[in-house]
Design a protein around this nucleic acid. Structure first.
Lengths: 211, 211, 211, 211
DNA sequence: AATGAATGAGTTTTCATTCAT
DNA sequence: AATGAATGAAAACTCATTCAT
């Protein structure tokens, strides 16, 4: 991205840019229609470029995916700012943000998988994207916690993963929508409100409470 | 032709059974090491049998998977009965059952995926298995609901999917254990306690489009 | 699988015969529906017998085929005798016989192939069957030739192969029926009538390379 | 390889072309030796290229076959023009054309089968090839019909199928050459000569005289 | 006689990625 | 920069036939 200033010749840059954009357009359509596991070759062909060209721009599937998501980043950021501006209730704001994230993670069939992987692999081009949203989530979360609208033991990362998991349950073609909603509701009960007292299995008999 | 009962009637079967068992052993190991997407041919080779033999016993990956899970079924059933016997608190019993299910669904890397798919496909050999556990979950759930330990609007299927989703988050090698625990806890807050109409995002007045 | 009921011990011969007949029935149906290239295993399964049983009775596909055709042999022989009895005109008799043969060779999709192979291989169980019909054809042919109704240079084998070729053209599901009829008509012009004088390509003096 | 004519403008193409040609050479040899049902993988291996390379050039067996035949197309067209030029007798010309076609259809063992299939399937790469030759046959045929050297009821398609059928009879290694010749001769009697409504078996209630 | 398990080579096809031009 | 050819390992599944029981 950073401009290498120079600009000695004129078209190479323009041409490449045009190609890049076109590939992204085609990939967006292709992934939307066939899920993210479709063949990259098919995308190159559909875009009318050689496979090499595609790989020059996006060295692997995750890179392509990351670029596509980056294109949606703007929307998500707009939405984030909108929520911040318009939602005074910090807990409601967090809920709305998670909702927006959920829609983002459902953009393509199969998307949650590489996103989750990116969260732990960290070498993926998707990792950065995810980290950014985890941070955003953390911000919303902290605000809600400050206001007593979210439990203190919850972490942004957990919520982000929860959103991914819900998107994963929805699966292809929004199957199991009702279960996804139920999960969302359950999760909300889990982070909303003051510190819980519920005894979890792993804590066994009487958990110490972390007021 | 069956009953010659009496004497040593089943030699051919013994051989096949031995093979079957051996294949299962090998598959168990292979799936544990390489995840469930590993090549079936590789398993056959590793088991020292022809590919045809494997396919005779297990016509496809799901069938093999189902057989492997069936081997664990006994454990799970034992655990279920144990919980029933020993845990008087129905909500705690449900929690423990979900915990056991969670461990079951984490047996192999990638397992949650076909399990979720089976839940909606219904033609898979895994479908039956899943349905059984959904039913078990429903039983635990109903008991808890009767006792006021679980909210009435929750369904067994939702909990089962929640467990799968949590197992999915854990991913390979228990990668995100802490987040998985957090999710489990959140989910518990969601189903535990008396009825309460959780305010979901969609109730928020200003966001019309996400019913 | 059907009823193997009865007392198991005493009827080796009867039992085997029953099996054989049943396999033939099933094979007939199977070949009729799926063509002769279908898997023999499938037939065994459909007949409810082990693959070994099928192979004991019919060591290979051609043997099974030959047995099936033998079952139809009776019909064909009846037809032959009928023609002999009822058709005074020897040329017309030959035509009718070829017609009957044509229907016989169209019994199963793909049948002409092994029949032709059998004609040259001679080790096939089908060879005998074919030879028999070639002989029959020869008889009809000689009669016609004696009466001047068929050209002297034609051989029964040629006519038999011509019938097979026509059946082959018809192919699956009687496709290209009109062409098959056209071929039959052309062939008839070829054998009917007195010795021809037509100069054939191969007689042509100027074309040296196509002997 | 060979002609580096003019400026060496097409390197990438040259490479591919070389490969393509080489694959065709090998396929030609392989099909000649093992019939057209031989394994494509084996051809790739024998050509020293990856299976993918073969499939890039020829997506399926029919495409490969079509390419091989196209290589022979030139010869056939040359022969066609030669016949047109040199054979004044239109019926003899047709006969010679059918003869040439017959040799073309005998190029590989098993070739007639896909050719016949292509005639009715029409989606195969072979279909075009066949259609072209049917058209050519029609032209020769019409000329002969105009001159009274061929019967008016015959169609080019029938003759083409007749040629295929004859090639089919010949089978592997020109097995039944004499019968194939006999068939050819019979067919010729069928199309040659002036119009005559051939009486087919089914029409013949009691055939009059053959004196 | 019957069974049906085992064999294992064999076929088609796909794809991510590299690399020569 | 772009191209698109080449790679070649995989993967899934089939089937005729044999053979131990």
């Amino acid at each position: 991205m950073s401009e290498t200033t120079g600009a000695r010749e004129r078209r190479p840059r323009t041409d490449a840019q045009r190609n890049r954009t076109h590939i992204l357009d085609v990939a967006e359509r292709h992934f939307s229609e066939h899920g993210i596991t479709g063949s990259l070759d098919a995308i190159a062909k559909r875009a009318g470029v050689g496979a090499g060209t595609l790989y020059r721009h996006f060295p692997n599937r995750d890179a392509l995916l990351a670029a596509l998501l980056r294109a949606r980043d703007e929307d998500l950021m707009t939405r984030r700012d909108e929520i911040r501006r318009e939602e005074a209730d910090s807990a409601a704001a967090l809920a709305q943000w998670l909702d927006a994230l959920g829609r983002w993670a459902t953009a393509f069939d199969g998307l949650p998988e590489p996103l989750r992987a990116a969260l732990t692999e960290d070498s993926s081009p998707l990792a950065l994207t995810c980290q950014g949203y985890v941070t955003d989530t953390d911000e919303f979360l902290r605000a809600a916690q400050r206001d007593g609208g979210a439990r203190p033991e919850v972490r942004g990362r957990d919520l982000f993963l929860g959103v991914l998991a819900t998107a994963w349950v929805r699966g292809a073609a929004m199957a199991d929508e009702s279960s996804a909603r139920a999960l969302t509701a359950m999760m909300r009960s889990g982070w909303a409100g003051p510190a819980r007292i519920a005894r979890t299995v792993s804590d066994a008999p009487h958990r110490p409470d972390q007021t």
